[in-house]
Design a protein around this nucleic acid. Structure first.
Lengths: 151, 151
DNA sequence: TGCTGAGTATCAGTACTACTGACAATCAGT
DNA sequence: ACTGATTGTCAGTAGTACTGATACTCAGCA
């Protein structure tokens, strides 16, 4: 993606534009940092959820990530092909699959997380440590807020 | 999109996750705020660029938005169908199209910008004015930074 | 026991976004 | 006039994430 002619204030004052491009830039950095491990940021997030939660069904994991359950199927297919996760039917409820990290998966998660944190620090480098921390906190605040919509 | 089970700290500590979901939430709000005018956030950004720049070629406008020139073609097709922009060949360089807002386009830009700003304020409401301003500034800083990559 | 309704994973099809590659028209320099 | 670069356009493709339909399983109940 070419980012030659800098955007003018008519764009950089728009929050939607800023968020979209910040996300894009971070995703590029993240992809580069994770490429040695053969995964991307979305897959790393799946691994993180699987590691942090109790042995989880696919649907539970999908909900934590706010992704569709059908999307989760495809992502787990890929992660399973890469040997990072295992699926087997839950003995107590055979509708469910229990998804767990493999030994390799745990290893990739650990190293990928480190690489990802390095990439984040680089991304935030032009901000001073205080502003970087506050950016994180502010994003957390606006993201975590529960649904305030009606319907 | 259902955002039921809140994400855990294994996700909300990851900048990529936060940026992606913040962008998504903002995009949803923006879409809702702009729907009365028949456009979405991307289209509003195009209108803003066209209004702020001198009579522009499609490619110049695309560069300012960091989108591909082929993508710009499709977006202008849509905006032209909606009667918001006009295209005609540049008299001085007939390879180029001069793209300009119509009267309606200017009107939609003005009203859409207002609606978008309201949506932004709602989105940032849980932050307090100081933190909101700083979030904007920090995002601007990390987004505007010129390419520091080699190649 | 058999029946019904709900939950789970899966797959096919679709929509959207944004790209690459190829093309015709045009310009600028020689 | 010829060559190379620029511009807009289009077809094709890739990635992402959805909807809708299907098969299997469970829980409740007559």
């Amino acid at each position: 993606m070419s980012r030659n002619a800098g955007p003018g204030p008519e764009l950089t004052s728009r929050l939607g534009y800023l968020l979209k491009h910040a996300q894009q830039l971070m995703a590029e950095r993240s992809a580069k940092a994770l490429s040695p491990y053969g995964i991307d940021g979305r897959e790393l997030a799946v691994l993180a959820v699987l590691a942090s939660a109790e042995p989880t069904s696919q649907q539970q994991a999908a909900q934590r990530l706010s992704i569709d359950r059908t999307t989760m199927v495809a992502m787990l297919d890929v992660l399973q092909d890469k040997g990072l996760v295992d699926r087997h039917p839950d003995a107590h409820d055979r509708r469910r699959n229990v998804v767990a990290l493999t030994e390799t998966g745990r290893d990739v998660l650990r190293r990928g997380t480190e690489a990802s944190e390095v990439a984040e620090r680089e991304f935030l480098a032009p901000l001073g440590p205080g502003a970087a921390r506050q950016l994180r906190n502010s994003l957390r605040t606006v993201v975590i807020r529960p649904d305030d919509e009606n319907s």
